[in-house]
């Protein structure tokens, strides 16, 4: 009986595989594939696109083109892809502020909840609440307590109004019932400078932005806005552990326009997933300080929408 069961299971598995393979081979790209990047060449998002494209290229019979369409914090690229045909030839690097945050702050020509098809998630970029090493708070609770006692006195920097970094602080303020001043900067680097110069009290940052200053003992991390602790910085508690249900970070991956046929998505997913799992890509990712995280297309889309909705509960578009 149990042998029979195993046999049946095996047969079913093989059948699935064959069908799956047949499905995947049902679509083959005939013209160049573009990956649109919403930021300038050389930035973190551009590097992810170029590395995954160069790694996947040998397995795909048509050229993969990385196209930089910088502007509106990545939203111009998202708009371009929303308006493209869902034929598998156009996708963009999603999962940043343009996908999970900005739409909650202002009107955008796309809606992340319905305008895109997720293909796969490739990396995650955690966000740490960073303070100067000599800050008077040992823990997040200390800081929240002070913010409660002095509403509107503490200040935070962000990499831009409406960015995920800004939103994390907005959600935290709401959940902790505190009020802080917001000083937006044009990107993460000037925000780090403002923090180090003592012009703001706290600033949300990706670890690579503050790595050197952390190593030199000049900044500390109070908490990380992830679902789990970072394997590299296991001593930093998550915001959830501190009692605030916030899980917002950059989850970079590929997404195309809504309504892509299943076989097209499967083809692209399988090729890029294989590329992501290759040693070449792992080596490139390690060099670029990328933390890899895989999610399948649907899970990826769900994760983005979940983050978007967390922010949406607190912020409404103007």
């Amino acid at each position: 009986m149990s042998t029979l069961r195993v046999l049946f299971s095996a047969a079913a598995l093989i059948a699935t595989l064959i069908v799956g393979a047949a499905d995947a081979s049902a679509w083959e790209p005939k013209q160049p594939i573009s990956i649109v990047v919403g930021f300038s060449p050389g930035g973190g998002t551009d590097i992810i696109a170029r590395h995954i494209a160069s790694t996947a290229q040998p397995t795909i019979p048509v050229p993969i083109v990385v196209l930089n369409k910088a502007g509106a914090s990545g939203a111009i690229a998202a708009e371009t892809v929303k308006n493209a045909k869902p034929d598998g030839y156009t996708m963009f690097v999603a999962g940043g502020s343009e996908s999970v945050s900005i739409g909650n702050h202002r009107k955008l020509p796309y809606d992340v909840r319905k305008d895109f098809t997720g293909i796969l998630q490739i990396t995650r970029q955690r966000v740490f609440l960073t303070v100067k090493a000599d800050a008077r708070w040992k823990t997040l609770a200390d800081m929240v307590a002070e913010a409660k006692a002095n509403p509107g006195k503490l200040s935070f920097a962000s990499a831009g109004a409406g960015s995920s970094y800004h939103s994390i602080m907005l959600v935290l303020q709401k959940l902790a019932a505190v009020e802080m001043k917001h000083l937006p900067y044009q990107g993460g680097a000037p925000a780090v400078a403002a923090l180090l110069g003592g012009h703001v009290d706290v600033s949300p940052h990706n670890p690579e932005e503050t790595q050197a200053m952390y190593d030199a003992g000049r900044v500390r991390y109070l908490a990380v806005a992830s679902d789990t602790r970072s394997p590299i910085l296991p001593d930093v508690p998550t915001l959830r552990e501190a009692g605030y249900d916030i899980y917002i970070e950059n989850i970079k991956g590929l997404a195309g326009p809504a309504g892509m046929p299943q076989d097209v998505v499967a083809y692209l997913h399988d090729k890029f997933k294989a590329a992501m799992e290759s040693d070449t890509f792992k080596r490139l990712a390690a060099q670029a300080n990328l933390e890899l995280q895989y999610r399948g297309g649907k899970d990826y889309m769900d994760a983005m929408v979940a983050m978007f909705n967390q922010i949406g509960k607190v912020v409404s578009p103007q």
């Binding site: 050389g42 973190g44 590097i47 690579e208 790595q211 050197a212 200053m213 190593d215 030199a216 000049r218 060099q287 670029a288 300080n289």
Partner: peptide
């Protein structure tokens, strides 16, 4: 980014 690729992190250290 190019520094990081070479395994060097600029900064005080």
């Amino acid at each position: 980014g190019a520094f990081l690729i070479q395994g060097v992190t600029p900064g005080p250290l």
